[in-house]
Computed example of a mutant assay.
Amino acid sequence: MNSSPVSDDKQLKLHIPKNFTLVLMSCLVLLVMCVIASLVLGARHVGWNELIDGLFHPEVDSYGANVVRKRISRTVFSLMCGGALGVSGALMQAVTRNPIADPSILGVNTGASLFVVCGIAFLNISSANQYIWLALAGAAITAVFVFGIGSMGRGGATPIKLVLAGAAISAALSSLVTAIMIPRSYVMDQFRFWQVGSVGAGTWSGITTFIPFLLVGMLIAFITAPALNALALGDDVATGLGVRTGTLRLIAALAGVLLCGAVTALAGPIGFIGLLSTHVIRLILGSDLRFLIPMSAVTGAIILTISDVGGRLIGSPGELEVGVVTAFVGAPILILLAMKSKVRSL
């Protein structure tokens, strides 16, 4: 029997969906449109000439061109965060076999938030490099805790038990966050802006910090995709195909936590992107993770960037943080999915 956690591709042949090319091209066109919208729309709209100057004419020092240049890092950061959250959602759903699993629903974001607020309150941290390690530790510990509680009792880790465990732990951790912040006004002032979830503070320094975590998480996701397809058939079938299910779940879950934790550290807890992006692609292309994972990355980038632009337009002349926009859109969709699927496993 194969000792690798990744199953043999010959056992799970690659069948390209008939509409894959059309969906891919449509998503890429949407992605380009989102990038343009992110660069030109906001509290100060810019024209096409200013956009061209800002992108290709560094010698031009007009106000509009400088606005475009300032928005480039924000747009790149938004695309990276959305892609990471999309892939994280796909991995969480595959590992838990839960169609409504998402880092925010399973309490991973809240665990990262607790560790960050503890770092601010007790360790006086203030930089992204410090946030990221605490957020990753909090996300990982919470994920293990949720899965452990959800696995107790008869039937093991069923979808409904995981969701309930995630909701309960998230509520408990949120209470701890509040308890730590209330007597410390300086912590509340620093934490409340981060807690909303925003890509507005995206800088080239933050992007550079994020890139290694993004590359490692994405690489693991792509490598484990064939074996995760086997896992969807059930543990017994996957084991018969040579998949070490325990090792696979651990590796894939770590990749999901790595992606989600890094985003949470740098942008704050942004929910529902993994849920929305993965469901959109699954409805169109099916459940083959070799297509679902990369396309969830593209769709997640589109959804988060659209949400960021929408928040700027709705809140003009200020802006509405993207975490608020995604929660406003994602919450009713989650309720609808739960009602239709009745929390069935994948």
Rank of each mutant, 00 (worst) to 15 (best):
A171D: 00
A221S: 15
A221E: 08
M181L: 03
F210E: 04
F210M: 13
K161Y: 01
K161W: 09
V177A: 10
G148H: 08
A171K: 10
I182H: 05
I169W: 07
G217N: 12
M181H: 02
L233N: 14
L233S: 09
L233I: 12
I182N: 11
V177C: 01
S198I: 09
V237G: 07
K161N: 12
A168P: 01
A221L: 09
T158C: 10
R154Q: 06
G148I: 06
L233W: 08
L228Q: 04
Q190T: 11
L215Y: 10
L173A: 10
G234C: 10
M152C: 01
P183A: 01
S170M: 07
L233T: 13
V163A: 08
A167R: 03
T178V: 11
W194T: 02
T209Y: 00
M152W: 11
I211S: 08
V216R: 02
A171M: 12
V187I: 08
R192F: 00
P183Q: 10
I223A: 10
A179T: 08
Q190V: 14
L215M: 14
S198W: 11
S175Q: 13
V216P: 04
V199L: 01
A165T: 01
F210W: 03
G156T: 09
G217M: 12
L228K: 03
A225D: 04
P226Y: 13
F213S: 03
M218Y: 14
S198A: 13
G234F: 15
Y186A: 05
G200K: 06
I180C: 14
F210D: 01
S174F: 03
P183H: 00
M152F: 15
I180A: 05
V216D: 09
R154D: 09
Q190F: 10
P159H: 01
L215H: 00
G148A: 07
G148R: 03
A165Y: 08
A232N: 10
L233K: 05
R184N: 14
F191S: 14
L215C: 13
W194I: 10
G217Q: 14
G197H: 00
D235P: 00
I211D: 06
I169H: 02
G150M: 03
I220F: 13
G234I: 12
V199H: 09
I182M: 11
W194C: 01
W204F: 09
T178P: 06
A201W: 02
D189A: 09
A201P: 05
G153V: 14
I149W: 03
P212V: 03
I207C: 07
A221T: 12
A227N: 00
P212R: 05
T209D: 13
F147K: 04
A168V: 00
R192Y: 10
F147A: 14
K161F: 06
F193N: 12
S205K: 15
I207W: 04
S170Y: 05
T178H: 08
V177W: 07
